[in-house]
Design a protein around this nucleic acid. Structure first.
Lengths: 151, 151
DNA sequence: ACTTGACCTAAACTTAACTTTAGGTATTAC
DNA sequence: GTAATACCTAAAGTTAAGTTTAGGTCAAGT
């Protein structure tokens, strides 16, 4: 496959793929006699791995390091394991933070929904936790130290 | 409180706080006669809200927009609600992506742990899902289309 | 009086991850 | 044969979210 086909299939831009190649993330990528990149199934899989690791918050330079380690064989197994152990902890932490943020946002969604019923924030602002739906109450109790008077 | 005290308490750098102020995120922040910023409890709460929204992936310009809407009163309630509804969907999507990435990473952690027992990847590379621990099997089945031959 | 420390501003710099531009090659379509 | 396409490189530009720098004010301590 050519770069254009890969870009369309995977929904990544052509320039991004070339950028990854330049950065050394696509080790072993073949070219034809004219210098044009030819992608096979494995190259596609590397690209998918890159996208997944990026979504996990890993930086390009670390993905590059990992890919380089892969090419160096068994003596880098320990390093690769440590990298993933660390990344696992990173993701778990991120998920926790997002869940916490979600609590706040869910409270806010409910808050504004109530405020809109009245056209103003007076009533909802004065509600005590006991007067909130239990789902919101939980969100509120996790995050109410964050709430601003202004709403 | 002064900027230095706030920075230390909240573990944000002084320059970041000044940057937020310059960007208009700290509307209504007072100064003393010498021009020095004086923070009260409400300003701290706004800062906490900013940190939380940032962690949720919201951009500074959107946080700024929200804060501006707050200052415009009840006619912006609908807009504020829509912003949070949208942000709620964003976070839920992000959590899903992270959980998917976590599956891959958990598989990788297990993979390298097994590989290290042998000093190479030969055995672990050939295992079928039935031969994996069930937790890993689930992760594998969600993500095995991503795996590269090289490990 | 003078030095120190905490504050101030404006403006330049930084970093990551791309994207855009400018100029060139090679294959296919008419 | 020439025009349109899809590819190529190197280098400059972009954006977000800060950080750093340079130069200045002000209050407190010695």
């Amino acid at each position: 496959m050519t770069i254009g086909e890969v870009a369309e299939r995977m929904n990544i831009s052509i320039s991004t793929i070339r950028f990854y190649d330049k950065e050394g993330l696509l080790l072993g990528l073949k070219r034809n006699k004219g210098g044009i990149r030819i992608f096979d199934q494995q190259d596609m899989e590397v690209l998918q791995l890159i996208e997944c690791l990026k979504k996990s918050g890993m930086q390009i330079k670390d993905i590059k390091q990992f890919i380089k380690w892969c090419s160096l064989g068994d003596q880098t197994l320990q390093l690769r394991k440590e990298m993933f152990d660390k990344q696992k902890a990173n993701i778990e932490q991120k998920i926790k933070e997002l869940e916490h943020a979600l609590s706040l946002i869910e409270y806010k969604c409910w808050y504004y929904q109530e405020a809109l019923k009245d056209g103003n924030e007076k009533r909802v602002k004065q509600l005590t936790p006991e007067q909130m739906p239990s789902v919101i109450q939980e969100a509120y109790q996790q995050t109410h130290h964050l709430f601003v008077d202004k709403g």
